[in-house]
């Protein structure tokens, strides 16, 4: 499944992969902040911020073309808006919107590509996110692939049984029925997961094996990145 690609990237062993997720999230937020507050006069030069995620991409030994292509998914939303702004008579602003959104999405993708999901959620928890939200995020990600596979299977089964040939109104009802069955199966699965977790002594909080501790290399990453990003913002200002 295409979603699993990012998961595969995040299991690498580079220096960046081994850093604390909190450090990487901090750097990401700082980077996004710098891109966001860069002035409109900077114009196309905002694209220079792309050097940072590209450097990280190469350092983490992630597939460059794959990551750049995947980050382009953001353009599906931004291009129509940029065209609207262009038509409204602001071509410079349209270009700025495209560049800012693409560079931001690229930075986000690189961060997730070098950090396993469990580590990210762990970092969110340590940064004060409500436990119920982090648990939901963790379980959502875990069962996402499984249920998406089931949905794809249900769709194939419906097509095999002549779904495409029935009248449109009937198709609508069949699709609703497929979603309802998926809903029921999800509820049953949730019940089994709940009982399984209770049987294993779940007390409302996940326990992680081999927690990552903040080490001096994380401080180096934060300081180095902060200096670079602030310097870039200063030059472009």
């Amino acid at each position: 499944m295409q979603y699993a690609v990012v998961d595969e990237w995040s299991r690498g062993g580079s220096w960046l992969h081994r850093r604390d997720a909190r450090a990487k999230l901090g750097v990401l937020v700082l980077f996004l902040l710098a891109v966001s507050v860069s002035p409109a006069q900077a114009g196309w030069r905002v694209g220079a911020f792309g050097v940072f995620p590209l450097t990280a991409l190469l350092a983490a030994r992630l597939p460059v073309a794959g990551v750049l292509w995947r980050a382009a998914a953001i353009l599906a939303f931004t291009v129509p808006f940029a065209v609207g702004v262009w038509i409204a008579g602001e071509p410079d602003r349209a270009l700025l919107l495209l560049l800012k959104s693409y560079v931001s999405a690229l930075a986000c993708l690189v961060t997730v590509g070098v950090t396993p999901w469990t580590r990210l959620v762990q970092a969110f928890r340590k940064l004060g996110m409500p436990p119920i939200l982090t648990q939901v995020m963790e379980l959502l990600y875990r069962y996402l692939f499984l249920l998406a596979g089931q949905a794809a299977g249900a769709r194939t089964a419906a097509l095999c049984r002549g779904f495409a040939g029935v009248p449109r109104f009937q198709q609508f009802r069949v699709a609703a029925g497929v979603v309802a069955v998926l809903f029921g199966r999800s509820l049953e699965r949730a019940g089994r997961v709940e009982r399984g977790m209770a049987a294993r002594g779940f007390r409302g909080e996940f326990l992680y094996a081999g927690a990552v501790l903040w080490v001096w290399q994380d401080t180096v990453l934060v300081c180095f990145s902060m200096t670079g990003v602030i310097a870039a913002w200063w030059v472009l200002r």
Binding site: L140, F172, A175, A190, G204
Partner: peptide, 23 residues
Amino acid sequence: ADRAPLLGVMGAFVFAAQMINFP
């Protein structure tokens, strides 16, 4: 309370349900 598994799986359900197209 203690229903995080239910909420998590239902979140995954929404993702999966979005794959089923309605004509």
